[in-house]
Nucleic acid binder design. Sequence first.
DNA 1: TAGGCCATCTGGTCCT
DNA 2: AGGACCAGATGGCCTA
Length: 350
Amino acid sequence: MMTKPFGKSGDVSELVSSLGWLEEDGSSQDGEESPELRARHGLAMHGGRMHSCTELGSEDMEEEEEEDDEEEIGPNGERAPKRRGPKKKKMTKARQERFRARRIKANARERSRMHGLNDALDNLRRVMPCYSKTQKLSKIETLRLARNYIWALSEVLESGQSPESHGFVEMLCKGLSQPTSNLVAGCLQLGPSPTMLNKLEDKCGGPGMGGVGGQAGHPLSYPSPGLPSPPYGSLEASHLLHMKGFKGPVYDNPSPNECSSGTPPYDGPLTPPLSINGNFALKQEPSPHESERNYTPHPVHAHYLSSHHYSASTTSGLPGGPQGHPLFQASRYELPLDVAFDNAFIYICI
DNA sequence: TAGGCCATCTGGTCCT
DNA sequence: AGGACCAGATGGCCTA
């Protein structure tokens, strides 16, 4: 798909004025945008991508006024040759109205679609090893970290490698930007001392944050003389507990009704467990062990504990690398992004 | 000020 | 025909 870059698509002002959007009333398209958005929108209209409004089909014939017979006069007064091909339809008032209404609806849909996408991404952020409400990982870093996290957890399950090991952190940091790597490394280095955990609550990055994001001393912290500590988030207290507590089925702080004992409960509707390739076919019944304990374990623990009770396909055939991982196998089906995010969230939670 | 990240608008394409 | 999805383009905000 090629869209013409702004400023290269012919007479923009003519196209804009033909739509009559800008001079109409100055109001927003859908009537609910902020002034800032309106300003933004006005600029966007100047972008000159409205050329294809003349290509819209499905218009009432009686409204069409064809500009046949008119010969175009060039800037120097010379006559341009008659255009061939389908005749251009003029934008009558009615057509403009209909086009505008359609566009407004499409914009609203697109906005809400992107909001859904961002919500799914937020849910994914919440189950990442480094989560903070105030300082969010960027979208791309969230996806990278999620990939690494799943991969690293798979390795833990497959090889019994400790999540405290150097290799675990190394896997988490693979492909991440340096600030994020430093952050993750710094987070995983911290111990779950209560004082530290209190400091961590929603205060991440920056000086005096109890070492959050503090890369100093960590074997995986990359020296970055030019880069200050990342202003991102920190390892949430609960995550620290779980990481450090990943030794067996004993829980420090069991808390019901949460995905993990410390991560915020996911209150939105979960995407139903997928059965793509049989990889996400979960049993809906809690295992006897789980009902006895009356809590919802942390992702790592839950997976560790219940691998015998869930479909074997979730744990069998774990890959040597991310490409062979069930989640990534599922990605071959080109799931919509928000569904993919939700699946990652679900996968980490089981 | 440059660069990164983000939200939004937009048109094209595909699907129902 | 209309909606979902996608990618390009743009401007705003923030930080180094």
